[in-house]
Simulated scan of single mutants.
Amino acid sequence: MSRIGIFGGSFNPVHCGHVRMAVESREQLNLDRVDFVLSYNHPLKAHDDQLPFATRWHLLQGALSGMHGYQVSVLERIFPGPSYTIKILSLYRRRYPEDELFFILGAADLVSVPTWQEGLRLIEYAGLAVVPRFGVGLQETADTVAQSWPDAVRKSSTVWDFSSGTSLHYLDAPILDISATDIRRRLLQGKSVASLVPFCVERSLGPLLPLLRQVKS
């Protein structure tokens, strides 16, 4: 049985905060691998808000190059319709029925999970690996669990067990509040994004300025 991390997002573009979230999750949860699931049709973002799928895929591949145990998955690309997380996790559960799955997300995203498409059912398919982000931390995580899954059992200050057999782990990780929107804005203003994105991504973004100008900020 393998332990697989699933990290979904538009990665528009991928940045160092994304990569570090995956690394912290893999190390702290002893994951065999982390799959970055690149969304094709994000339900909350218009197509003109995003770089082309092929461009985001290329940048993500470059960011993970040479990193053993981290890979890009486009599993949801072959299925029609919006890239709902519940759909992605159900696909993974069907494909890997014997493996232990963990969905990786920031604490700020966890707070909004109850508003997602069947968001409260995510724990039926995978555990949750929650990373502090954008000033949202352990207290907000605890409040969200209490309100959304009142039957969850708090095993420690940072771990909750769900009746579905999965669990939530709040990770002790550095807070890297980097946003893709800010990166795009900096590039369009002619500012450096050094250390905000992997070096290979930084190199690739320069020639993409004409595309970036077409993307809403």
Rank of each mutant, 00 (worst) to 15 (best):
H68I: 12
F199S: 15
V23G: 00
D172S: 13
V34P: 04
L138F: 06
R184V: 08
T85K: 06
G69C: 13
L29C: 10
R186T: 02
L101T: 04
S163F: 04
A46Q: 15
R203Q: 15
P210N: 07
S167F: 03
D143K: 14
I4K: 00
S164P: 03
V113Y: 09
G5H: 02
L171P: 08
F36G: 00
T158C: 10
L122H: 12
G165N: 08
R121M: 10
V197H: 00
I78L: 05
G165Y: 08
F102G: 01
S39R: 00
K216Y: 13
F103D: 00
H169V: 07
T144L: 13
G5Y: 01
A180G: 14
E24P: 04
S73F: 06
A146R: 15
E124L: 10
S2Y: 05
G135S: 11
S73N: 12
W149L: 10
D182F: 05
H58K: 14
Q28Y: 07
F7R: 03
A146S: 14
A142M: 11
F162Y: 08
K216Q: 13
S192N: 09
D48M: 01
V23D: 03
L176D: 09
Y92N: 04
N12V: 04
D182N: 13
R213M: 12
G17A: 05
A22I: 04
K87M: 08
L208A: 04
R184G: 08
F134Q: 13
P198Y: 03
V72D: 06
Y170H: 10
H18P: 05
G8W: 01
G190L: 06
G106D: 02
L120V: 10
V145C: 13
F53E: 02
D151C: 09
A107H: 04
R203I: 12
T166K: 12
G17I: 01
R133I: 02
T158N: 13
S192M: 08
L176T: 02
W149G: 06
V72N: 05
D161A: 14
A46E: 14
A180E: 05
V153I: 15
S90F: 00
E27V: 08
G62A: 11
S167D: 03
L176C: 05
P198L: 11
I104C: 09
E76F: 03
H169Q: 10
T158Q: 11
V23Y: 01
H68V: 12
H18Q: 07
S65Q: 15
V111L: 11
I88F: 02
I86E: 12
P174H: 06
L205K: 01
H169M: 02
A63V: 07
Q117F: 14
T115C: 04
E124P: 01
E202M: 09
R93S: 07
L89S: 05
G17C: 06
W160D: 08
S192C: 10
L188M: 15
A54D: 14
H47A: 13
V111N: 07
G69Q: 11
V193T: 06
L208C: 05
S148Q: 08
C16Y: 02
A126E: 06
L212A: 03
E76T: 12
V215M: 04
R20H: 07
L212W: 00
S2R: 15
Q61W: 00
L168G: 06
L171A: 10
F36W: 05
M67Q: 14
H42Q: 11
G9V: 01
I86D: 04
E140T: 12
T158E: 07
L212R: 00
R26Q: 15
H169G: 07
L60F: 03
P82T: 05
A46M: 09
E76V: 09
E202C: 06
